[in-house]
Amino acid sequence: MSYKKTGRFDGRKADELRPVEMSVGILPNCTGSARVQVGKTVAIAGVYGPRKVRPKHAELKDKLLIRCYYDLVSFSVTDRARPGPSRRSIELGLVIKNAIERSIFVEKYPMSMIEVFVEIVQADAGSRCAAIIAASLAVADAGIEMRDFVPAVACGKIDDLICLDLTKQEEDVHDGEGATDIPIAYIPSEKEITLLQLDGKISEKDLMEAIKLGIKGCEEIHKMMKDVFKKRYETK
């Protein structure tokens, strides 16, 4: 079986994203908040700050301290996830922070912190990418000075087909060469990749091609992120 010939399960083209929906300012208590839906994956992010660092000894003298928390809601997956932090969610909190930090003018907020909380309400692969988009939108909604938005998307390979934005069903493919999943975050104005992970097997040539596709996907999402804010302030 070749996925190049048969195409994808949901009939998308190789370089086609799932439908994306975004909204900002959804949680009144948060300084900034956002909801992002990519296909069947839903992420809600909320930001508090800049505020005093707790505990005080964690304070950074020359820049903003960013803390990110990723949480998979227990009923977001078909098999119930145990509530509370897991090793996976702690790692993802860290990679989300590392993905968005470059986009923020951290030197403008010394001795203070922001906390970003992301809840994955519904998961169908690509939850860390949806989380990064939501986190970046929420930070922007909080009015924190930024260089740019941080779009993120997974690219990868299903058997012999290099494609964009894999679903859970596609990630679980074991035929032929199996599935490879490469989540990417890319800041267009800086031309920098701030998230890059890989899970599977892939040749160097295919990897470079996949990353290029991922960057193209990020640019598409970046445009949508800009439009959300344009639309928000137009209506006001």
Binding site: C30, G46, Y48, R51, Y69, P85, E115, F117, E119
Partner: peptide, 15 residues
Amino acid sequence: CSGELSPISDPDFEP
């Protein structure tokens, strides 16, 4: 039936 005071919901709730 269970739940927690999620820190996303209030500036005073801590993880």
